[in-house]
Design a protein around this nucleic acid. Structure first.
Length: 419
DNA sequence: TCTGGGGTCCTAGGACCC
DNA sequence: TCTGGGGTCCTAGGACCC
């Protein structure tokens, strides 16, 4: 048995945790640079506010309906996420945190312990609400894809009230019939349209297709999805938990950049993030890609990238940043109004089986990096950084509607007034 | 003033090699 | 004289997710 636990519009709910005044109001959260809407709370959803629309296009509509607007407060979300995951983790010895607000649980040998999954799911919901003030949905299923489907039912279909279970043919049919095919995990709008033309409208329609034929027609992904919808497990626990095959860090700037120093500062920050992520999943990279571009919405769209190969795979911030600095002059072009840049680690290998090079001395400093991580994890990211990262003032993202750093800054700590 | 997110994986097609 | 197989790697772009 699998379960998927995730929060109801996590970012919007997180904004409500320390601000009871907005709990009963429509709230939306914007992406970096206040670019698009990325989270819509259930109250705001009733106003038909579309997700991932540019903010400036719906500004007027939001103002008209007194919608509360917040910029993304990642410091806050990261803390609340950790808190939520710890609570959920108490209910299963086998948890995988899949994204900032989702975690998969795998229950093996729980038959004797749990005789009512429904009650168990509600216990999880109750605990998260009581301790973290976050609403979550819980979906149980015999495969990861069915757990995802049940989670969808728990949150979006009427009559489930936050918990849904697919553990027999009746419950499977009932839920899949009520789901649109595009609500299935792995089926997006593009594939959805093609399927509609084939007369496949609901999740059950899709489940009833021949997996092999559909696989030939589309891809291996859809083949696995169909099997999983039929209770045949294709995604093993190890698949879900698999380490990333590539790691990127990129961001658009708060304002356009025209100086090489600013670009260097931003790229150095991305090198740092990528290297940290590599170390966290115990990977090394053999090759990185460094890229920068102007805005695709403007004329003279400029877009460039460069690859760099390492003789010995690495996760060392200093080595990766050095490669970036080497590439930087070729990437930069005077006159271009840079809008975005980033760093990607591709071709990863596990740190456990490090392949050395006979003619190159390994310059990694694992002890230094371990110390670096320890200090930054304890005192906050950015406490220690390379000099060429400088400060982010020239390229920092716009966050006009930022809520206080309730959990990560002393002066923002919530205050309770007693009469 | 002028505005448009970020991350990961898969696939098709071409180049190249033996 | 002219034709033919099969594998790997690279790259751009597509698709999906939250």
């Amino acid at each position: 048995m699998f379960a998927l636990v995730d929060a109801v519009s996590f970012y919007a709910s997180a904004e409500k945790v320390f601000d009871p005044a907005i709990r009963n109001k429509p709230v939306v959260v914007l992406t970096n640079n206040d670019g698009c809407i990325c989270a819509v709370c259930p109250i705001a959803r009733k106003l038909n506010i579309p997700k991932f629309q540019p903010y400036f296009k719906v500004k007027g509509y939001l103002a008209k309906h007194n919608v509360v607007i917040r910029s993304s407060n990642y410091e806050l979300y990261a803390d609340l996420s950790e808190k939520m995951m710890n609570i959920v983790g108490r209910y299963c010895d086998n948890q995988y945190v899949y994204s900032i607000d989702e975690s998969f649980l795998q229950f093996t040998g729980f038959k004797r312990l749990v005789d009512d999954w429904h009650e168990y799911g509600h216990n999880i919901r109750l605990a998260v609400w009581r301790e973290a003030k976050l609403p979550v949905g819980v979906g149980f299923g015999t495969t990861p894809t069915l757990a995802k489907a049940a989670n969808h039912a728990a949150k979006k279909l009427s009559g489930y009230n936050g918990v849904a279970i697919i553990d027999n043919e009746a419950s499977r049919q009932e839920i899949l019939t009520k789901m649109k095919v595009t609500d299935v995990w792995g089926i997006g709008t593009r594939l959805g349209k093609k399927l509609q033309l084939m007369g496949i409208h609901t999740a059950l329609d899709l489940a009833n297709c021949n997996a092999r034929d559909m696989g030939r027609l589309f891809s291996i992904v859809i083949e696995r999805t169909i099997s999983e919808l039929n209770g045949i497990q294709c995604l093993s626990w190890d698949d879900i938990k698999q380490v990333k095959k590539e790691i990127f860090s990129s961001r658009s700037f708060g304002k356009r950049i025209t100086h090489i120093e600013s670009l260097q500062s931003a790229l150095a920050a991305h090198c740092n993030i990528v290297a940290r992520k590599l170390r966290r999943q115990k990977s090394l990279t053999k090759r990185i890609v460094i890229f920068a571009s102007s805005s695709p919405h403007e004329n003279n769209y400029y877009k460039k990238f460069f690859m760099h190969d390492f003789a010995v795979a690495t996760s060392d911030t200093c080595i990766i940043t050095k490669a970036m600095n080497y590439i930087l002059p070729s990437l930069f072009q005077p006159g271009v109004r840079f809008y975005r840049c980033g760093v990607g680690a591709i071709e990863l290998e596990t740190a456990q089986f490090m392949q050395m090079d006979m003619f190159n001395i390994n310059k990694d400093k694992p002890e230094l990096m371990a110390c670096f991580d320890k200090i930054n994890n304890r005192f906050g990211q950015g406490t220690l950084k390379l000099a060429c990262e400088k400060s982010a003032v020239s390229w920092q993202m716009k966050r006009y509607f930022l809520s206080p750093q309730f959990t990560s800054r002393w002066r923002d700590i919530p205050k309770i007034y007693c009469k």
